[in-house]
Design a protein around this nucleic acid. Structure first.
Lengths: 126, 126
DNA sequence: ACATTATTGAGACGGCGTTATCACACCCGG
DNA sequence: CCGGGTGTGATAACGCCGTCTCAATAATGT
């Protein structure tokens, strides 16, 4: 039977506090303050469990490890900063997506990913 | 100085014939008919060279090896079939992309990727 | 044709993200 | 508070991609 451990609570807390998608490494860093001895293996195990519970969902991007965010949010997309590699949510979507798909194809999902520089990096002079 | 070899010609020909983005593995398979003994290492080398010459450009997708397509095409996006993993081009784009980026962020690029089932797979009953 | 030298192909190698291993820790029902 | 069994942490091992190595091959200038 499943146990409530400090490490799992720390991972959940990290997700609740961050408000943006995090890579396993970021989760580890965000969980350390709450559970100092936590290791990367436990983070991966917690992520796996939380995915199965659908408490988080995966956000994948090319060339980078997947990020995870708390599930159940309204439809949205993502912005990836080219400097700090932090990922942000962007609200809303665009009309007319369906029209892009070639005739005869079945469209099931879509990802819009924006790339650029985030406000933090811009104001830091990059 | 650079030499014209059958292998490089085979790779270029593969790209010209396919008309859609290909992974290195797909390039290898598509080049084999023209240069039967070609190996994967040569494909990677040819891709590297063609990228430097900007004769092809990279198309990246999460969780999959990058695809490459002949460069210089007008702005477009991509459709990835969930069954056969083949990638297709979709023409056109959507207005209003800029408005999605959060205020204070600098938007430099965007990717729209559609996921679904391609016509070939649908007509094959999947 | 010949010598030079870039290119090739097969397999070894390396990096990275993720998972498996295993001894130890600790949660929880009794 | 005790015992068994799940959870944990460090690290090794894995799988995948892509690059490197090196002897063999073949394209160029003469």
């Amino acid at each position: 039977m499943e146990r409530n451990t400090a490490q799992r609570a720390a991972v959940r807390q990290a997700f609740e506090e961050s408000g943006r998608p995090m890579s396993p490494k970021e989760v580890l860093d965000a969980a350390r303050p709450h559970a100092p001895s936590i290791g990367i293996a436990t983070v991966y195990r917690a992520i796996k469990t939380l995915l199965e519970e659908q408490w988080i969902s995966a956000v994948e991007i090319p060339g980078e490890p997947a990020r995870y965010e708390v599930a159940g949010k309204p439809h949205h997309h993502h912005f990836l900063c080219r400097h700090c590699s932090k990922m942000y949510e962007v609200q809303g979507c665009l009309a007319g997506i369906r029209a892009l798909a070639p005739a005869g194809f079945r469209l099931e999902a879509h990802h819009i990913t924006l790339y650029g520089v985030c406000e933090d990096c811009l104001s830091a002079g990059r």
